[in-house]
Measured scan of single mutants.
Amino acid sequence: MQNSHSGVNQLGGVFVNGRPLPDSTRQKIVELAHSGARPCDISRILQVSNGCVSKILGRYYETGSIRPRAIGGSKPRVATPEVVSKIAQYKRECPSIFAWEIRDRLLSEGVCTNDNIPSVSSINRVLRNLASEKQQMGADGMYDKLRMLNGQTGSWGTRPGWYPGTSVPGQPTQDGCQQQEGGGENTNSISSNGEDSDEAQMRLQLKRKLQRNRTSFTQEQIEALEKEFERTHYPDVFARERLAAKIDLPEARIQVWFSNRRAKWRREEKLRNQRRQASNTPSHIPISSSFSTSVYQPIPQPTTPVSSFTSGSMLGRTDTALTNTYSALPPMPSFTMANNLPMQPPVPSQTSSYSCMLPTSPSVNGRSYDTYTPPHMQTHMNSQPMGTSGTTSTGLISPGVSVPVQVPGSEPDMSQYWPRLQ
């Protein structure tokens, strides 16, 4: 039975679970980093996980050691009161100082060594604690504590007292930064006198190289990059290397530039699409467009005044059976039934097929058609009795279509119309 579990990581490298990497692998990681390889490249070359490479390099940059820390136990506290007071002093002298600059000053002034120097995250935590204590304490208590930490007896009751030896409130920041720059020169002199001055200088240079600022491109470089971006948004590694040799930039910087440029292009394309949609959409909808001609068919113009009344309900007709019959029939052209047409008796099958359309009241044959006459024609229609054979009435077949029909004066039988409509 094995005491430890061995495995293979996602890159194909072998590791022992819970145990640190061998010293030979750690040394190779540092050597590759000094030669300029990126952590992701080191991870692929040595088949070590990216997190492990970053952790080893980060500890090497901070402490200069590649040895693993002790497994188990607690780390001794490195942010001692003396170190905290120095950090507060540096922050007062130059409020814009960075944590890694404070760390360098602690090393250069001999406050800490490589073994007990606090990390950048520890210094940031100390600065946050100082800021929170400043908010919790009152103004007087804060000034007393700062005077105690600074070891001075001057008056701290006013704002300019934060910067000793100065009279203009805006000047101390520059003086403090100048003092810090002077301390940086002392850093070089002190570290050069040490035993491991060369190694420390190499480590600091490598650290500065990794902690780079934003790349500033010249106009020629920007023009070359934009020209390549117009050709393709995704250049391959050969195109990037050719462009890197042409404009004297690292291939990694060119790759990052193209990634950022593609993101910018997507944002601009989104804005262009929004403007295009806004320009195509009308600002207001016309009133006429809300009524579609496919839904509402136009009603033909009436030929006679009587045809303006298109349904039985508008003429005072309360018989719903006839109203439904007229509205359900398709529109037909106007025609006239003459008196000489043969009077065919209704076929029983045809009569039964339209039995649902006729009223059940037996008085329908005896009703006159003056009910369908509009009010303004009552006088004219009353002067001509319906009993004469020459009287013409208008029957409504569908809305908007008038059918003048000659009705025999002897017997106005409704059943004569249905064979004609089939």
Results as ranks from 00 to 15, higher is better:
residue 2 Q to V: 14
residue 3 N to L: 10
residue 3 N to I: 10
residue 7 G to L: 10
residue 9 N to D: 03
residue 10 Q to D: 04
residue 12 G to E: 03
residue 13 G to S: 03
residue 14 V to D: 05
residue 14 V to K: 15
residue 15 F to D: 01
residue 15 F to N: 01
residue 16 V to N: 12
residue 17 N to K: 15
residue 18 G to H: 00
residue 20 P to F: 02
residue 21 L to R: 00
residue 22 P to E: 05
residue 22 P to D: 06
residue 22 P to Y: 01
residue 24 S to V: 10
residue 24 S to K: 09
residue 24 S to Q: 12
residue 24 S to I: 12
residue 25 T to V: 09
residue 26 R to F: 00
residue 26 R to A: 01
residue 26 R to L: 01
residue 27 Q to K: 12
residue 28 K to A: 10
residue 28 K to H: 07
residue 31 E to F: 06
residue 32 L to G: 01
residue 32 L to Q: 00
residue 34 H to M: 12
residue 36 G to I: 00
residue 36 G to F: 03
residue 37 A to W: 11
residue 38 R to E: 04
residue 39 P to G: 12
residue 40 C to V: 10
residue 42 I to H: 03
residue 43 S to Q: 00
residue 44 R to P: 02
residue 45 I to Q: 13
residue 52 C to Q: 01
residue 52 C to I: 00
residue 53 V to F: 01
residue 54 S to R: 08
residue 55 K to Y: 03
residue 56 I to T: 02
residue 57 L to R: 02
residue 58 G to V: 08
residue 58 G to P: 05
residue 58 G to A: 15
residue 59 R to H: 10
residue 59 R to Y: 06
residue 59 R to F: 04
residue 59 R to Q: 05
residue 60 Y to M: 00
residue 60 Y to A: 00
residue 61 Y to S: 07
residue 61 Y to N: 15
residue 61 Y to R: 15
residue 66 I to R: 06
residue 66 I to C: 08
residue 67 R to P: 03
residue 67 R to F: 07
residue 67 R to I: 06
residue 70 A to I: 08
residue 70 A to W: 04
residue 71 I to S: 15
residue 72 G to W: 00
residue 72 G to H: 04
residue 72 G to R: 06
residue 72 G to S: 05
residue 73 G to S: 05
residue 73 G to I: 03
residue 77 R to L: 03
residue 77 R to S: 06
residue 78 V to Q: 02
residue 78 V to T: 00
residue 79 A to P: 00
residue 81 P to R: 08
residue 81 P to V: 08
residue 82 E to Q: 11
residue 83 V to R: 05
residue 83 V to Q: 01
residue 84 V to G: 03
residue 85 S to D: 08
residue 85 S to Y: 10
residue 87 I to H: 11
residue 87 I to Y: 02
residue 87 I to R: 01
residue 87 I to E: 03
residue 87 I to N: 01
residue 88 A to P: 00
residue 89 Q to R: 13
residue 91 K to Y: 03
residue 92 R to Y: 15
residue 92 R to A: 10
residue 93 E to P: 03
residue 93 E to Q: 11
residue 94 C to E: 12
residue 95 P to T: 09
residue 95 P to M: 10
residue 96 S to A: 14
residue 98 F to L: 06
residue 98 F to P: 10
residue 98 F to T: 05
residue 98 F to W: 09
residue 99 A to C: 06
residue 99 A to K: 03
residue 100 W to R: 15
residue 101 E to T: 05
residue 101 E to D: 06
residue 102 I to W: 01
residue 103 R to K: 13
residue 105 R to A: 09
residue 106 L to P: 03
residue 106 L to Y: 02
residue 106 L to K: 00
residue 107 L to E: 10
residue 107 L to P: 07
residue 107 L to M: 14
residue 108 S to G: 14
residue 109 E to S: 12
residue 110 G to I: 12
residue 114 N to V: 12
residue 114 N to E: 12
residue 114 N to L: 10
residue 115 D to Q: 15
residue 115 D to R: 13
residue 116 N to P: 06
residue 116 N to I: 09
residue 116 N to G: 08
residue 117 I to A: 15
residue 117 I to T: 15
residue 117 I to D: 08
residue 119 S to W: 00
residue 121 S to W: 00
residue 125 R to Q: 00
residue 127 L to C: 12
residue 127 L to D: 06
residue 127 L to R: 15
residue 131 A to M: 11
residue 132 S to Q: 10
residue 133 E to V: 09
residue 136 Q to W: 10
residue 136 Q to M: 11
residue 138 G to M: 13
residue 139 A to P: 07
residue 141 G to M: 14
residue 141 G to V: 11
residue 144 D to H: 11
residue 145 K to T: 12
residue 145 K to A: 14
residue 147 R to D: 11
residue 148 M to R: 14
